[in-house]
């Protein structure tokens, strides 16, 4: 299995720290990054992405505040134990997220089939 990677689009209106935070959060909550798995240092990830260390540090801080990772001096940054998940996702919230996604996709000019394909590919990428 390929090691997971982070992808940042610097031309996107979403700030890079938020892109990093969202992707790491998705990798952790979907189990692609396992509990206690070590993450790269802020400096390494920042250097690899060509971003300022503060940008990556902000993403890590927010993930730490959400209890998804923890950092200890000498032990580095590791994936925290997952909080117990709600048995069923909130349907209202899920519908709201879907509406947001469809709105953005339509803004890009995507048709219904292209939107469904993109969702299926994202689900395969992040099972």
């Amino acid at each position: 299995m390929n090691s997971p990677a982070i992808r940042v689009d610097t031309s996107s209106p979403v700030p890079p720290y938020e892109q990093i935070r969202a992707q790491l959060a998705a990798l952790i909550t979907t189990g692609r990054l396992l509990e206690r798995e070590r993450l790269p240092t802020v400096r390494q990830l920042a250097a690899d992405l060509g971003l300022a260390a503060g940008t990556v540090a902000r993403a890590y801080r927010e993930l730490e505040a959400a209890s998804l990772i923890h950092t200890r001096r000498g032990a580095g940054t590791r994936v925290a134990p997952l909080p117990s998940r709600a048995p069923d996702p909130d349907p209202t919230r899920l519908a709201e997220l879907a509406r947001q996604f469809v709105t953005h996709a339509r803004t890009l000019g995507a048709e219904g089939d292209a939107v469904m394909t993109a969702v299926r590919e994202a689900l395969e990428e992040l099972p």
Binding site: S3, A5, L39, L45, D48, L49, G50
Partner: peptide, 15 residues
């Protein structure tokens, strides 16, 4: 060389 271009990727394996 520093990474350039709009889209950049990085692995998550610590070095």
């Amino acid at each position: 060389a520093r990474p350039r271009g709009d889209v950049r990727t990085a692995g998550l394996t610590p070095r």
